[in-house]
């Protein structure tokens, strides 16, 4: 073994690679067109198989009267769409999808900014704090949501217990009322807040980490220059740091938008769209209609309402990615 290595080392490169091999190797590597096709093929197949076909199938379903029992495609035009639009559940789901997404993202941006700034500082236990922040991201969303379902449970909620202990709940003249429980998931306002809370909890780690990475990439000179120029903390943050990480921040935001907008796990586990249908969202409603209720046509129609939003977001993501390349 050692002997071979030594021999190889002392031989000239031309001896190691006989001329013919060298040229044929160079031949393949030189044909950029062919190589390009070879490298791109898996991605193209993947997109056709897992994105393209389902997408066109969804369009076909939405225009047909297909059900789970009878998947034959009899075209019925836009009947599914008009029927879907007329139900209050759908309108609520449409509204809630936007409402949850926008409110949750707004809160996430605010909190992520604060957290990222705090976490970029030097303090004891920084690494522990950072790990704790990233933890929700590492937990499967369904598992985390089940945890939240317990925390917000109508009988066993630890939040209620704490509130009772400090006297804010359950006493005759307690601030939050004499009842022993707030039933977070059973009242419209609280249920909506709860769903938003869980979405925030889920997206916050990603946003924080992206912002932290952005903040650490700002040259130290520039921040020090801002200090010398007389700016105080908030001015530096909002007029120097944030604009400099805006491209990366907008990508974090857009990813958060997509994750929240398309998510059905949180509402499914937490509320199943209830109480009544006050926390219904498009993906969950599409699932209830199309899969649970078996009406593939209407389910597909509901799901397709998400498409323009997702398309617009994707375009925005690509544009801000390009802006990052340019600057």
């Amino acid at each position: 073994m050692a002997e071979t290595a030594e021999r190889t080392a002392t031989r000239k490169p031309s001896e190691m690679f006989p001329a013919r091999e060298l040229s044929s190797g160079a031949f393949l590597a030189d044909r950029e067109g062919l190589l390009g096709i070879l490298f791109l093929a898996p991605a193209v197949l993947y997109i056709i198989g897992l994105v393209g076909i389902p997408f066109f199938l969804a369009i076909a379903f939405s225009l047909s009267d297909a059900t789970i029992g009878d998947a034959s495609l009899d075209i019925v035009g836009f009947r599914n769409f008009s029927r879907v639009i007329q139900t209050p559940q759908f309108r609520r789901a449409l509204f809630d999808s936007f409402f949850f997404t926008i409110v949750a993202q707004f809160i996430v941006i605010v909190l992520a900014n604060i957290l990222a700034v705090v976490m970029s500082r030097d303090f004891r236990g920084k690494w522990l704090a950072r790990t704790l922040i990233i933890l929700p991201w590492a937990t499967p969303i369904s598992l985390g949501t089940i945890g939240w379902k317990w925390i917000l449970d109508s009988k066993f909620s630890p939040i209620d217990w704490v509130l009772q202990q400090v006297g804010l709940l359950g006493g005759p003249d307690a601030l939050l009322g004499p009842g022993r429980h707030l039933t977070y998931l059973g009242v419209e306002g609280l249920a909506v807040s709860s769903v938003i809370l869980v979405h925030v909890w889920r997206i916050l780690p990603l946003a924080t980490v992206i912002l932290m990475a952005g903040l650490t990439s700002i040259p130290r000179d520039i921040l020090e220059q801002a200090q010398v120029d007389g700016a105080k903390f908030w001015r530096i943050h909002f007029q120097v740091s944030i604009p400099m990480i805006l491209p990366i921040m907008s990508i974090a935001l857009l990813f958060g938008l997509i994750f929240t907008f398309t998510d059905m796990v949180v509402t499914f586990i937490l509320t199943r769209g209830g109480p009544v249908y006050y926390t219904q969202v498009l993906p969950l409603w599409a699932w209830f209609k199309g899969i649970d209720g078996g009406n593939l046509g209407e389910g597909a129609a509901i799901a397709l309402f998400m498409f323009p939003v997702l398309l617009a977001t994707a375009i925005l993501i690509l544009r801000s990615a390009r802006r990052m390349e340019v600057t």
Partner: peptide, 29 residues
């Protein structure tokens, strides 16, 4: 802190704010 010292500094890298115009850079202090 630097802001309370009545000084100005030019760094070797010039440390211009890349997202601001020249006007805004000069006006920043």
């Amino acid at each position: 802190p630097p802001r309370a010292r009545d000084i100005a500094m030019v760094f070797q890298s010039y440390a211009l704010y890349p997202h601001m115009t020249v006007f805004d850079n000069i006006a920043f202090p």
